[in-house]
Nucleic acid binder design. Structure first.
Lengths: 266, 266
DNA sequence: CGATGACTTGACTGCTGTCAACGTGCGTGG
DNA sequence: CCACGCACGTTGACAGCAGTCAAGTCATCG
């Protein structure tokens, strides 16, 4: 995957940005690590040439060697069922770590594919773990990131298990918006790098439903859609529609849809 | 579940089983840890008196101090939405660790409630982390467990996002069965410690649907149900119905239901 | 033995999936 | 430059799975 077609003259030197200079330093691993320790972390990280759209970072069953941090661009991770059906498990933006689910068994349970031209930091896990034994704060940070991943997954379970199609898409858009905010992008305007089909698959909806909902949201003045470009016009109301946590993770609002709300007991 | 009505005179002394003597040692943290190291781990673990059914181990928002290992009995973890709606996130059997999702933020995002009389090992996280810096294999084991948790959550996302009601319940039963096997219990016969409502909530189904499916499965000769007692008669066929991974986590079988299978692309 | 809660069963409804046709944008090749 | 193909997206018609509502049964317990 790393090597594919050199394209242009992207000299490796240009890509070699140290952790300390990376704008994602607040999001990625290094939080709370001192300067000299940061350099040690930096030294084990490998930065490959950008991955063109559609290329795999790794495939299902690939042996686990590294964790990957997204530096720019985006990827989707997905599993495939026996019959070749694809199940999108997540979309990954700059600053996010991929491959945490592979530590346990030694191979990747999911595949990761670039949704656009994407550059990656490769972190050899063995080295990271060794370094972790020497740097408790790094170790702690790693545990925190994994814990956060678990928490996020739990949040996704709620969305998939209990929410209506409308709430799912609204939640998805708000969540994306929040993630963009964190990266210094506009909260109200962004481009989707994934297809309607990917979104639907991820949210457990048919792609037609996603398309219809985009149209409905637009008609209701919640947002404007033009192909991949999304403009959130009434973010507040979209939060209401999402029936849940709005800004960065605080709960909000209730919901009263008919279906998909089985719980009511105990 | 192993114990159903333990009650009697469970003196605290009886419960004080060292890690090394615990029958769950293969499942819980200590895998791959040497004898003397095991004693050190043992020394930081606190074993409380059993939790009666319905009691909380912790509640949402409780400050995070400890991880908890189930020693006997079972619990459910759940979140509550603003309007008091409960969302069951998981059921936890002996040997499983609870609270991993609390490391990141310092408080518990979920509540944990005993489904029956349940005993617990309390592991102060701070101590565990310190010990981890001294015992790389312990540290590694902790990472593996968290990674597995992430992997399991991903599996749940597939079930919730893509599967029909029938497949969900079948998956749930097979998964339970597998977990019982791992603990040395019968794969074909067990007692559910949770209510139909809990199951439905967990699977994103109405409790009526769960009830109907139990009936249908029974009519089709897949299993026998009597209140909480389940006997899997045709485990193989139930696997087929689950449309996925059957034994311990290996993929299997296909599915061809009509609804709930939006993905089909790319 | 009645109260309570858990579970079952039936009737009905509707959200959302499936199927299908049609637009739209983009790249390729003539 | 245009025709063409192709992938992606939109929209409509229809149907079915599973939710809601409601009534009834069963078990446990005081």
């Amino acid at each position: 995957m790393p090597t594919r077609k050199l394209e242009k003259v992207v000299s490796l030197k240009d890509i070699r940005v140290a952790c300390r200079e990376c704008s994602l330093i607040e999001i990625c691993l290094p939080v709370g690590i001192g300067q000299s320790d940061l350099d040690r972390l930096d030294s084990i990280i490998d930065r490959k040439r950008p991955l063109p759209r559609g290329d795999h970072l790794f495939r299902i069953g690939d042996p686990f060697q590294c964790l990957y941090a997204v530096r720019s661009g985006s990827l989707k991770t997905y599993a495939t069922s026996e019959d070749g059906q694809e199940q999108v498990m997540g979309f990954h933006l700059p600053g996010e770590l991929i491959g945490l689910d592979a530590i346990a068994e030694g191979d990747h349970p999911l595949a990761a594919k670039a949704l656009e031209t994407t550059s990656i930091c490769e972190i050899p896990f063995h080295d990271l773990e060794s370094l972790g034994t020497q740097l408790p704060s790094l170790q702690h940070q790693l545990l925190r990131i994994m814990s956060k991943e678990i928490r996020d997954d739990e949040h996704n379970m709620v969305i998939l298990g209990q929410k209506s199609a409308e709430e799912r898409l609204a939640s998805f858009l708000i969540s994306l918006s929040n993630r963009f905010i964190r990266r210094g992008f506009s909260a109200h305007q962004f481009n989707l790098s994934m297809s309607r089909s990917d979104i639907g698959n991820y949210l457990g909806l048919a792609l037609e439903t996603v398309s219809r909902l985009f149209t409905r949201f637009q008609n209701e003045g919640l947002l404007r859609v033009d192909r991949k470009h999304i403009e959130l016009i009434d973010r507040e109301r979209l939060c209401v529609f999402s029936g849940a946590r709005c800004s960065h993770g605080t709960p909000k609002q209730h919901s009263q849809h008919s279906q998909h709300r089985p719980s009511k007991d105990q």
